[in-house]
Design a protein around this nucleic acid. Structure first.
Length: 274
DNA sequence: GCCACTGTTAGCAT
DNA sequence: CATGCTAACAGTGG
């Protein structure tokens, strides 16, 4: 489920609570949740204090003492939630972290079981394969570099925005909203863009992602932050999930196309193909 | 019951 | 490299 704004919101909601807490134990109920990690690796976290949380792309990194890190990818349906020690495990809960001297326990639940946790013991966690493969952070990169970044790319804009090695963190919802905001049709090839299109695309990326983060992300189906709260950017979607409904700008019915196996929603009038 | 669909992405064929 | 298909998995809605 979660794309950049949702993971950012989850990171913030977790950070508010657990920074400074000491891990007591990490229990795993679904072995395949662990990637390149075993239970012995998890034991190293016992007694370690959590010192920070950050997001990179759609990945969440929890930093602990002694160069230890927990790297989560929530994929489609991963969620964090809190329970009280001793409470029964809720369905689809695959991991539980308890903390020294705290009654609250942090649980990870994932209906479709696509997500993973990898433990890292290194002073340079950003060098792991998962993070190295990512392109720049869209909200941190210098916009003056964007024309060069996109200039060397081919292929359709929709697929390019979903490509995590191009920019990190954009998924299906925000790709569609960004393209609507830019006035660009999803099948447009990246190499056909004029300078002003590139600027519009960059501005749309900034605007949509910043607003979505400010709104706490989009709750369509499952997404909640770690405190169980919904985001509200779904109320501002202009195209995603709106097939057949009138465009908010021109009134034309929103259309849907499958591009690379993903649904793509767009306005046929406001988003003309180049 | 069957089929299509879902916020992700790795792997493999073309 | 780009694109397209499949699979990982479970649930929902028509």
């Amino acid at each position: 489920m979660p794309e950049l704004p949702e993971v950012e919101t989850i990171a913030a909601s977790l950070r508010r609570r657990i920074v400074g807490w000491k891990i007591d134990k990490i229990e795993v109920f679904l072995p395949k949740l662990l990637r390149k990690t075993d239970v012995a690796g998890l034991r190293k976290f016992k007694g370690k204090k959590i010192i920070g949380l950050r997001r990179r792309g759609k990945l969440l990194l929890i930093a602990c003492e002694n160069d230890l890190f927990l790297l989560f990818h929530l994929k489609m349906t991963g969620q964090f939630h809190w329970t009280i020690a001793g409470a029964a495990r809720e369905t689809h809960t695959h991991l539980r972290i308890s903390f020294k001297g705290r009654r609250r326990e942090l649980c990870y639940r994932d209906v479709r079981k696509f997500g993973f946790l990898r433990c890292l013991a290194t002073p340079s966690p950003l060098d792991c394969e998962e993070l190295r493969a990512l392109g720049p952070e869209p909200l941190e990169m210098d916009g003056r570099r964007f024309p060069d970044l996109i200039g060397r790319r081919k292929g359709r804009l929709k697929s390019l925005l979903l490509n995590q090695s191009f920019l990190a963190g954009i998924g299906n919802i925000y790709a569609d909203e960004i393209l609507f905001e830019s006035g660009l049709q999803p099948l447009t090839s990246a190499s056909s863009l004029a300078g002003k299109d590139v600027r519009r695309l960059w501005n749309a990326i900034q605007k949509i992602l910043m607003r979505a983060v400010a709104a706490g992300g989009s709750s369509i189906r499952d997404y909640k932050n770690a405190d169980g709260l919904d985001g509200h950017f779904q109320f501002y979607h202009k195209v995603y999930g709106r097939e057949g409904l009138p465009c908010s700008r021109c009134g034309s019915p929103i259309e849907r196309l499958a591009i690379g196996g993903r649904s793509s929603f767009f306005c046929p009038r406001c988003q003309r193909k180049k």
